[in-house]
Design a protein around this nucleic acid. Sequence first.
DNA 1: AGCAAAGTTACACCCACTGCAATATTGCAT
DNA 2: ATGCAATATTGCAGTGGGTGTAACTTTGCT
Lengths: 210, 210
Amino acid sequence: MPTAPTLTVATDDGLRERKKRARRAALIDATHTLVARDGLDAVTVEAICEAAGVSTRTFFNYFESKDDAVLGHGPWPLSPQVVGTFVAGGPTGDLVDDLETVLGEVVAHPPMGHDRFRAALELAAREPRLLAKQIAWVEAHRGAVVRLVADRLESTPQPDGGPVVEPDAVAALALVLVHTAAMRWEAAGDDTDPRDHLHAVVTQLRAIFV
Amino acid sequence: MPTAPTLTVATDDGLRERKKRARRAALIDATHTLVARDGLDAVTVEAICEAAGVSTRTFFNYFESKDDAVLGHGPWPLSPQVVGTFVAGGPTGDLVDDLETVLGEVVAHPPMGHDRFRAALELAAREPRLLAKQIAWVEAHRGAVVRLVADRLESTPQPDGGPVVEPDAVAALALVLVHTAAMRWEAAGDDTDPRDHLHAVVTQLRAIFV
DNA sequence: AGCAAAGTTACACCCACTGCAATATTGCAT
DNA sequence: ATGCAATATTGCAGTGGGTGTAACTTTGCT
């Protein structure tokens, strides 16, 4: 089940599902341990599978690539309520502030537990190839973000003074905000709130743009 | 010679160098043709090499990967004069405007001729994996950009009213500007100026931040 | 208990990519 | 022009990531 990178709501439960989640977690943990110790390229998929007690073929039933196992890529649940509010023009009415709210919700609720999530970020910060994959993964959601922003822009007419704001530009901003905030969070420490980092980045950009 | 992704000034000339450039170009062209026709995954390195009349081993002397051949990744010359002006606080004194100037210089002077460059962008827009690689390549220059921005921020003291602006945030902004402008340019057309697209993106972001 | 669906595994395979050592080509000094 | 040194190309053998397939095992349901 090479999980497609979509923003969906995870609800399914049952014994089978729990076993699958456990295996997936075990695979991720084994990958983290080995990669942290030996480096990404020195770790073979075979070694990971041996550590996790699984055949290599099964590994690729869970992840599309070795890199994906480190990053734990998969569906990322996102509250439809938060999305709905944003699209409707809320909660504050200011585009950037509301964007910050939505993105804060995203980074504050990773789909795997903070420990694993932070471990993934830490390894990503160390291994360039992983960082690239991470960004690419974020980028893969560009379409969804563009649609989100487009809906919002439609429901809240722009003032006619300024230039026409294209959803793509806003989406690009959103993606860079998430990425920069994540990196800042990783560098700062476990006990900080990712949303604070997001806010700091937004504040700085606002200041830059006068 | 797997060209390291650094921003250097290309000056070297001589008969040997010209032959190398020609081969490199031939390899890129062959890759473009085949990938445009059959898709990235359906094209093997062997096929590319056959088309270019070169051994597969030689291919990997020129590029680190098949993907790199499509994108034509390599050193990207950047005028030290433009850089110097930017670091010194010019040309206008406004950070965003001056950033736009530097980045405009970058996108307007690709290291391979507009036709090849646009072909690469077009394929990147079509194949997700290439887009990811493209972003990764830009990302690999983050360090250089951060240093650039840091120098500038040092030489031009910030007003003490606003928040402390971190080079990383500005660098992240710069990278996303380049990427977004490039995509916009690709979507628009051959006869447009990439700098115009860059300007459009900057203008929109400025408007968003009120 | 027993059947169907879903998951796991072994196996065979393709191909991207690398290190190495031999060979060919080029630039240069004389 | 000739021979030498530097540089480029190539063949070869090997590693490892990733996939298709078909047998086999486990799970959920009745």
